[in-house]
Every structure is written in structure tokens, then in C-alpha cells.
Design a protein around this nucleic acid. Structure first.
Length: 643
DNA sequence: GCTAAGGCGG
């Protein structure tokens, strides 16, 4: 199956960006920090200006914008008769906060406002309080507020309505949301009637967006897409919402496909579009498209700030271009840990352990506090570089110096680190002693290490645990089977195979892809569905002859099945990464580097043969497997055969 | 004065 990626034609820039409302109080607008504000506030108290509701509200707003809710609350509590404006500001301040506690406070404030009865909530109050209900998922309160909306006759306000729909969506009440959505469409009449009213149409788009988002949230992508396609008018947010929805739910191809489709229409991608689509590009390793996005940002004067920049760094790393990632990184503002995490993780993935450690020291010098994700990158770097002692000390550093609670991921990294280095007993010990709930992933890390070091004793033990806690997962069966196969215990192999058959558990099919001229070409294991299958097949034969000529003998230990030697060799020859490479060789000019992405880990035979292929055909071959990169050149691999 | 979309991870 192929999916097409757009050709790099860069459209013209889109006008954007909002303007800041000017303040009635120049003293307040000249404030930069809360400290500045306290001085102005003091002066306002002295001059009694603080009793001007507008002035007080602006102070309130400033605190809210600077996330100093405590101060905002004080200012609010000192108001003798807060008007509707002030209530709205304080409620909004709490509702905007991402924490549940604050959202609850917003709802509480709203109750007080209604019960006090001095001022009535208006169309500006409801969006905020509904947002708070949405955040806490307070369906009961949400319904009550819906009642109040009707009581105050605000159920035809697009802002209020879209927040009501959103509240239902976030409370998981899609039926209610949809009912309200349909009803409002009817109430508004069709689009041609409201088309003249720009504001209303915009509100209408939000309503649609919120509904599409709702279906995305409940994972109903078919309904989301249907609604999206039916939209009478799409804004850039409509596109961004679905693109990011796809990308965040593992539907990378769909995300990219939609991004491509967007370019055919009249809505131009903006900053958020790029940030949303980049993770999908990264995951698929679609370097050409990634470069296009980078160029688009530059041509359209979209600021490459830390957020977009980190996404680009990650994209270049995951698409095999660590040098380009480093280039982008150096131009970024570096006060944010995520930016550092992206480059450290990237270096780790490319096996450049020492560089990753060096960047960490730079990060510390820059005074940026590492986060738990930083340590995942560092531990990965140590793991791929065989730096066991360094890894241990990073783990300790994280806990005792930085005071971060290690999460299951960090334990996973440690097990991987110890396991890869052959310290299997210690790795097992480490798991047994960890203070938090063990999951399947952590045992799988150990099982992988057992397979790597052919330790059947521990391997069996781990596999049994795994089959108990994740009985439907093919990974543990395959790993166990490989473990037995590597020691030639074919009887045990077929036992595992039988078990899998009985339980109808299938091995995840190996799959590799290569991007050529903007098209992602995907190959499954033993794939002969490609329109150039014949040429690919003869190239595969040629490769295997060439390999034999230089004295290569296939490493058949990892083949799952008990087949005769010839069959096994044929089986290996048809691994998806080899097919992708054969296709790459016949489809590109001499010396063009080949970039392959594989969904699983690369097998030993493929690794050894690709080293030789890079020498025989004088090609740089960059393979990204499930865990990391392998740069093959002149017969060697950047992983130094340690992966 | 109010609504919709966002980067790093075993």
C-alpha cells in the first residue's frame, strides 16, 4: 500500500495573528511582572482608583494572565461590589487553569455569583464556567448550567452554545452533545442564510469543530471524518484539529494524508498545523515531507520557536538526519527543557552516547532543570552506548539530586541498560525490587536481553510471567520462540508455536518503508504485491549472490520456524527491510543514501547483510528500527554491533 | 471581556 506525500511547492504566506487590546490604564499596561503590578496596585489603593471597577478588573486580569491566582483572588475578595465584569474575570482566571482544583474553584465562584444574586451571569460568564465543568467532567453541574443558560435566554449565543456542546463532549455525553449540535444547526438555519453574518458563521465553524473534536476524543474517527467532510466551511482550526487528532492517536498516515489534502484547498497551514503534523512525519520517517515543512515555515515567516523547533529537531532525528537536527537545535532558544530533551533523545537514538551526555552538561550549564524525559534520553544513550556505570549514576542523580520520582519508563531504561550489557541477574533483581507496579513492557525489556544473550533460564521465567500478565501479546511468544531457536531447541520452538496457534496469536508482521520522491513505499515481509515486484525479486537474488561471493553465510539462528537451511535462508532474504533496500537500490541513482524505517527491531542477519550491502553497493544505508538508528557505511554500522 | 487546534518519552 502506498500513500502519496505532497510535492514541495510552497504556497504564499497566510495573514494571521491577533493584536493586543490596549489598556485604559497605561500604568497597568506598562507592567511586565507581578512585582511591577503590586506597585501600581499600591498606588491605585492610595488614590482610591482601585474602586473603579474597570481598574480593579484590569488588575485582576493582569494577575490572571500571569497565572497568579492567589493575588487575583485577593484583589477580587477586596472588591466591595464586584460587577458582572469582575465576576467573569475571576471565574475565567480559574477556569483557564489546567488544574482540576482551580476548575472546581471556578464552578464554586459561579455558584456564589448566582446565589448572591446581585448580578446576573451573562454570555461572557457561561463559556468560562462551562469550560470548568468540561475540565472536571462535572456532568451534573454542566446540565444544571445548561438549564440556567436557557433561563437567561442565552441558548442562541454561539459562544455559549459551543461551550455547552464542548462540555457534553468532555463529559463523554456524545448523545447530548450531538442533540444540541443538530438542534443549533436547525435553529441557525442553513449556512447560506447566515453566510452574510461572518461572526455567526465563525461561531458555527467552532460548533462543528467542537463536535469533530468530540468524536476524536471518543476515538470514533469515522464519525469525526464524516462530520469533517460535511462541514460547510472549514477553518484552519478544523484542519488542525483533525490532523492533530490523527497524529496523537497513532493514525500517522491519515494525519499526513489530511495535511496533503489541506494544501489542495484554500486554507493555508499555520504554525499549529506544522506542530501537529510533524510528530506524524517523525514517526513515519518521511524526511522529504519533513524538510518541506521546515522550508514552509521559513518561507512563510512562521517563527521557529522552541515548540516548533523541538518538533523539527525531533523530526530530523527520527528521519535519520541527526546533523540537521543539531543545526536546527543550535538556532533555538534554549530555556526550555523540551528543546534539550529532543536533541538528547535524538543523539541517544543515533547511538551517539557521548554527545548526548555532552549536551546534558550544556543543559545544566545553561541552568535548565532536567525533567523525567531528559533522563529517559540519557538512560537510552547509556543503554545504546553500553555505559552501564554512567547510566546508574544518572538514575541516582535523578532521584537524589534532582528529586524526581522514577517512573516505570525509567525502570524500563535501567533494565534495558543492564540487560543489554549482559547483567541479566541484576536486571531481574532490579525489576523484582522496584517499588512500583511492574508492567509487561518492563518484563519484555528483560526478555529481549535474555534473547540477546541467549539466557534460557531467566528467559523462560520471564516469558511465563509475561504470558500471565499479557497473554494476548505476540511479542513474548515470539521472543521465547527465538530464544529456543537460537539454542537449537526446535522441540520447544514448536511447542511455543502450537501454543500461539491454539490461542490464535499471530506474530506482528514485519514491515519496512522507504520514502522515494515524496511517496512512502511500504513493504511487508515476503511482500510481492509491489508493481515492480519482479525487478525487486531479481535484485534480491543478485544481492544474495553478491553476499555469497564475499563469503557471507546467513545467520539463521533467529528464524522462528523449524525449516531446513535453504528455506530459512529464503525466509531471511524476504525480510521487509531487505525488500525495501532492494527496491531502493533499483530506484535511485548511485551513491544516493537509502533511508529505511522498520516497525520492529532489526534482526541479526539483516544487520550483518546490510553492513556488507553498504560496502558492495557503495551506499550509505540508514535504518531506523523500533528502537534506534543504524547508519551503515563502508561495511560497518554506527551501532558498533551493539543494539 | 468570552469559544476551537500544539513540541520531548521504555
Amino acid at each position: 500500500m502506498n500513500s502519496t506525500i505532497s510535492k514541495p511547492t510552497i504556497p504564499s504566506p497566510s495573514p494571521s495573528h491577533s493584536s493586543h487590546p490596549s489598556s485604559l490604564f497605561p500604568l497597568i499596561s506598562s507592567c511586565k511582572t507581578i512585582r511591577d503590578l503590586t506597585q501600581v496596585h499600591a498606588q491605585f489603593i492610595k488614590t482610591s482608583k482601585v474602586h473603579d471597577p474597570l481598574a480593579a478588573a484590569e488588575i485582576l486580569r493582569f494577575c490572571a494572565n500571569h497565572r497568579d491566582l492567589e493575588y487575583a483572588r485577593q484583589v477580587f475578595d477586596q472588591m466591595r461590589k464586584p460587577n458582572c465584569f469582575s465576576w467573569n474575570t475571576i471565574i475565567r482566571a480559574f477556569a483557564d487553569c489546567s488544574a482540576d482544583e482551580e476548575a472546581k474553584e471556578a464552578a464554586l465562584l459561579f455558584r456564589q455569583m448566582v446565589f448572591a444574586g446581585f448580578v446576573e451571569p451573562n454570555q461572557f460568564t457561561f463559556p468560562s464556567v462551562l469550560k470548568a465543568c468540561a475540565r472536571t467532567g462535572d456532568f451534573e453541574m454542566g446540565k444544571q448550567i445548561h438549564g440556567l443558560v436557557i433561563k437567561y435566554g442565552l441558548d442562541n449565543d454561539v459562544f455559549v452554545l459551543s461551550n455547552l456542546v464542548r462540555m457534553y463532549v468532555m463529559c463523554g455525553a456524545m448523545v447530548d452533545a450531538n442533540y444540541l449540535f443538530q438542534k443549533s444547526l436547525i435553529d441557525f438555519g442553513n449556512v447560506s442564510k447566515v453566510g452574510r453574518d461572518k461572526r455567526r458563521q465563525e461561531g458555527n465553524v467552532v460548533l462543528w469543530n467542537v463536535m469533530v473534536d468530540g468524536y476524536v476524543r471518543i476515538g470514533d474517527f469515522r464519525a469525526a471524518r464524516e462530520l469533517f467532510d460535511e462541514m460547510p466551511h472549514k477553518s484552519v482550526v478544523s484542519w488542525n484539529g483533525l490532523i492533530s487528532g490523527y497524529a496523537q492517536n497513532g493514525l500517522f498516515k491519515e494525519a499526513i494524508e489530511l495535511f496533503r489534502e489541506m494544501q489542495l484547498g484554500d486554507v493555508s497551514p499555520n504554525y499549529v498545523t506544522l506542530v501537529s503534523v510533524l510528530p506524524a512525519i517523525s514517526r513515519l520517517g518521511a524526511l522529504e515531507l519533513g524538510k518541506w515543512v521546515h522550508l514552509y515555515a521559513e518561507k512563510n515567516k512562521i517563527e521557529i520557536n522552541d515548540v516548533l523547533g523541538s518538533a523539527l529537531v525531533d523530526m530530523y532525528s527520527k528521519c535519520g538526519s541527526i546533523e540537521k537536527a543539531l543545526q536546527v537545535f543550535e538556532k533555538l532558544p534554549k530555556e526550555n527543557a523540551i528543546t534539550w530533551n529532543a536533541i538528547i533523545g535524538g543523539l541517544a537514538m543515533h547511538g551517539r552516547a557521548k554527545d548526548a551526555l555532552y549536551f546534558f552538561s550544556r543543559m545544566q550549564k545553561a541552568g535548565v532543570m532536567p525533567t523525567d524525559v531528559t533522563y529517559i534520553g540519557l538512560l537510552n544513550a547509556c543503554s545504546h552506548g553500553g555505559l552501564v556505570e554512567e547510566g546508574r549514576s544518572f538514575f541516582n542523580h535523578m532521584v537524589s539530586v534532582v528529586g524526581l520520582e522514577p517512573r516505570i519508563e525509567h525502570y524500563g531504561c535501567m533494565v534495558d541498560l543492564l540487560g543489554r550489557a549482559g547483567q541479566l541477574e541484576e536486571a531481574e533483581e532490579f525489576i523484582l525490587n522496584m517499588p512500583i507496579q511492574k508492567d509487561d513492557v518492563i518484563w519484555k525489556a528483560l526478555l529481549g536481553a535474555c534473547k540477546m544473550h541467549k539466557n534460557i533460564e531467566i528467559g523462560k521465567r520471564v516469558a511465563e510471567i509475561l504470558m500471565d500478565i499479557a497473554p494476548r501479546d505476540s511479542g513474548s511468544y515470539v521472543a521465547l520462540s527465538n530464544l529456543y531457536a537460537s539454542s537449537g531447541n526446535w522441540e520447544a520452538v514448536s511447542e511455543v508455536r502450537l501454543m500461539m496457534k491454539d490461542m490464535d496469536i499471530r506474530k506482528d508482521p514485519g514491515c519496512s518503508w522507504i520514502e522515494l520522491d515524496g511517496v512512502i513505499q511500504e513493504f511487508l515481509v515476503e511482500d510481492d504485491s509491489h508493481h515492480r515486484a519482479k525487478e525487486i525479486h531479481s535484485m534480491l537474488n543478485e544481492i544474495s549472490n553478491q553476499l555469497r561471493l564475499v563469503g557471507y553465510s546467513p545467520k539463521t539462528e533467529q528464524v522462528l520456524l523449524n525449516m531446513d537451511e535453504e528455506e530459512k535462508q529464503m525466509n531471511l532474504q524476504h525480510h521487509s527491510e531487505k525488500i525495501a533496500i532492494a527496491f531502493g537500490l533499483i530506484s535511485t541513482g548511485p551513491k544516493t543514501p537509502l533511508r529505511i524505517v522498520k516497525n520492529l527491531r532489526i534482526c541479526e542477519d539483516c544487520h550483518a547483510s546490510i553492513k556488507l550491502i553498504s560496502k558492495i553497493y557503495k551506499r550509505k544505508i540508514i535504518v531506523r528500527d523500533r528502537k534506534r538508528f543504524h547508519h551503515f557505511e563502508h561495511g560497518t554500522c554506527s551501532c558498533m554491533d551493539y543494539w
